[in-house]
Design a protein around this nucleic acid. Structure first.
Lengths: 191, 191
DNA sequence: ACCTGAACACCGTTCAAGT
DNA sequence: ACCTGAACACCGTTCAAGT
């Protein structure tokens, strides 16, 4: 008589993510996850490719969430406003998921799944194209994403310790990005 | 008769860093480090506050190195050229130390030692002040550092997978940063 | 004063045996 | 078809005993 499944991959991933956010990545043990879903550690190997596989699934789940929230953030009318909304959505997600977010760009994972990545960049590319022109879409999107990820990464790491207002630095850079991406209008006018 | 020291904290830290760069962070075991310096694992606890303490010292050592290389990179004549040189030095360090670099902004370390941090930001702040004016020094420096760190972090994580030339994106963003930081000259001219 | 073997608690993972 | 206890290899860390 086949034994019925007592948990699911989704439950395992969510439990793992909750553990990371509550107690940190080091607390993510197979036994802790198993206990959280009401099973024994060896059973997890039916759902997940070991601890490393679980971490990757957590990162993928988070990446899909970010993508959805970036999509929701843009309105499509004012490109500059969309850029700010996009960045704000990313930052809000990171501050709400401070332990999970850094997984998205962990070099040990060598990137998140292609589907999650493609969804995430879609919104950014549209805004970048609207601001910088289609011919600069890719480098403009990369500039925005690099800055935003770097900023929240440093914020999460507690790297802004020289005083000053972190929110002011955030707004200053966003103003600068709008100017920088929109600068093609100045071409030829001056050096 | 007191036993003579058979290794040193420096040797332990360097050996640990070499292991990380060669085989990854997961290969950094106390036994591997001990073997590399010719000692048994328990002896390392005389030099280093456990594995976590060792990782922190590796990050601090790397941070001091980055700081020195950033200092060396700037010439002091042309601020825009200094910005490019600064960014290039950071990127070169990251590509030469792909496993160590991400430790610098690992939230689990909650930042690198204050001395290393202060040294690192010194060069960036000078360049930021020269480009953006003293009144915007801090937010300008944060914009530059956030972008540069974000860019190389994504590059190391293999996050630039949409094709296109990564170097082109790098140069595009640097051009944009020069424009963005120097935009105070445009104040009042237009919105 | 530092080094070591032995020991402890804990971890990821495998697998034969259960149902 | 999934779950489990038992087992294995490995890890970080402590500490009494050596020199």
């Amino acid at each position: 008589m086949p034994a019925p499944a007592r948990t699911s991959t989704d439950a395992v991933v969510s439990a793992g993510r909750a553990i990371i956010e509550r107690d940190g990545l080091a607390a993510l043990t197979m036994q802790a996850v198993a206990a959280a879903v009401g099973v024994r550690a060896p059973s997890l190997y039916k759902r997940v490719a070991g601890r490393d596989g679980l971490v990757r699934l957590i990162a993928d789940q988070a990446a899909m969430e970010v993508a959805a929230q970036l999509d929701d953030a843009i309105g499509g009318v004012d490109p500059a406003a969309d850029l700010r909304a996009l960045a704000a959505a990313l930052r809000a997600f990171a501050l709400r998921n401070p332990a999970t977010f850094p997984l998205l760009f962990d070099p040990r994972l060598a990137g998140v799944s292609p589907e999650a990545r493609d969804r995430s960049v879609g919104a950014v590319r549209r805004v970048a194209a609207a601001l910088a022109g289609a011919e600069h879409e890719l480098p403009a999107a990369r500039m925005v994403v690099a800055w935003a990820n770097g900023f929240v990464t440093m914020e999460l790491a507690g790297a802004f310790q020289l005083g000053g207002d972190v929110d002011e630095a955030w707004d200053y850079a966003l103003d600068g990005l709008v100017v920088a991406l929109g600068r093609r209008e100045d071409r030829g006018g001056r050096v």
